[in-house]
Amino acid sequence: MYKSKSKAMLLLPWLLVLPVVILRAFTTVYPIITTVTDSFFDIRLLAGKNEFCGFSNYVKMFRDPKVLISISFTVIFVLVSMFFHLLLGVLLALALNMKFKGQRFLRTIVLIPWAMPSVVAGMAAKWAFNNDYGLINDLIRRIIPSFNYNWLIYRGSARAAVIAVDLWKDLPFFAILVLSNLQFISSDIYEAAKVDGASTWQSFTQITLPLIAKGVATLCIPFTLWRLTSFDLVYSMTSGGPGEDTALIAYRITTEAFTNLNIGYASAMAVVLFLIMLAFSLLNMKLTNSKKFET
């Protein structure tokens, strides 16, 4: 079809893709290389320092109590949030799949948390968890009138609150993706099972779960990655507080880079985070490949 062998025609493919390739290269490759080199330097803008320091940023990181708190909360955040993503996400997907008159309305409203900026949810949550005037305690007090609790000033409850808001905002998105897996299951299978006398519970555990298990497992990888770099929510809701207890690693890195101006140190943390994500992504590729292999 491309009869003209002119130079323009040969260049055409590259002309088409270059704008996006250059843009992405410029915003990702170049900065990543800089981050990696910076991580071997002791760059502190406030102290006016900029000298090579080998791996000392990396060593320092694992002895810094602030970073250790961030790492431990990030791990907790990812594990707990993903556990409930799986549990409640599948349940919500089943609910969204119910055949009844309210289906379209239900599917529409669950898109609202997904579509709103995390900072809006975070700012609202900061006030919702306020002891005196917040929505949460107000609702609880309608059942237990004497209830009093200041969620965001204690470590455990502040962490639980952050995870709860993360789930409120993100579960619908997860559920919709689970739903797309559910929709591939033909209703014939359920009919057949019903004829054979299977209960609803049995057809859920024997048919639904095995059929969506692989798809849902694959979903977990990107959702885990997004949790690892979660920043907006904590920035707006708790500013990492109380103390450093809810400072997720992405928040810690950004604070070091933009507030404390410890560029080298922040870069080292960023590199470690990136390597962890890379490992996860390779795992992801392996999983998706094996899926392709089977079908």
């Binding site: 990702t28 690892l228 992405a250 890195i253 992504s281």
Partner: peptide, 12 residues
């Protein structure tokens, strides 16, 4: 490049 988080590229 989808996998590269903003925090890693931010400062440079």
């Amino acid at each position: 490049t989808m996998l590269i988080p903003e925090v890693v590229t931010a400062r440079p």
